[in-house]
């Protein structure tokens, strides 16, 4: 299988102690990032599409809501919660925190996990 098709192609292991990277991301979720943060983000974003968190565009440029890619083609694709994002930066930060929890098994301390 080629690299871009293999869900396990990225070997980076997220270090739950690297809160500096969390702070860097939080400062600018859609900005230009350091090489180490780029590696972390590439790992977070890589993988099997099934179950991946995605934003559904409710109104272009205005409103978005979280959903997940379902397991099989043809399955329904419900929203995961009621929250409507009006900022892509906030949505990006929200998903980052969910994935941090999922992938490291640790909860971010309050001082680095507050809203933007």
């Amino acid at each position: 299988m080629d690299h871009t098709s293999d869900p396990a192609a990225l070997r980076y292991v997220i270090d739950p102690k690297r809160l500096d990277l969390v702070e860097e991301f939080r400062a600018s979720p859609l900005g230009v990032h350091s090489p180490e943060l780029r590696k972390l983000l590439a790992r977070m974003r890589w993988g099997r599409p099934e179950g991946r968190l995605v934003l559904i565009v409710l109104e272009p440029g205005k409103a978005w809501r979280l959903s997940r890619i379902p397991k099989r083609r043809g399955d329904p694709m419900p929203f995961v919660d009621d929250r409507v994002f009006t900022s892509l930066v906030e949505a990006e930060w929200h998903v980052f925190k969910l994935r941090w929890q999922e992938m490291t098994g640790t909860t971010l301390p309050a001082e680095v996990s507050g809203d933007l």
Binding site: H3, T4, S5, D6, P7, A9, L10, L30, L41, A42, R45, W46, G47, R48, P49, R52, L53, V54, L55, I56, V57, L58, P60, W64, S67, I69, P70, R73, G74, D75, P76, M77, L88, A91, E92, V95
Partner: peptide
């Protein structure tokens, strides 16, 4: 945006799916 392993890494942000994508997922 629905089915590619690498696509979110390529786009460098959480994927933004128009509701047409939801329709395509539900009506392949």
């Amino acid at each position: 945006r629905l089915y590619q392993v690498h696509f979110e890494t390529l786009m460098e942000h959480v994927l933004w799916l128009p509701q047409d994508d939801v329709f395509m997922q539900e009506n392949p």
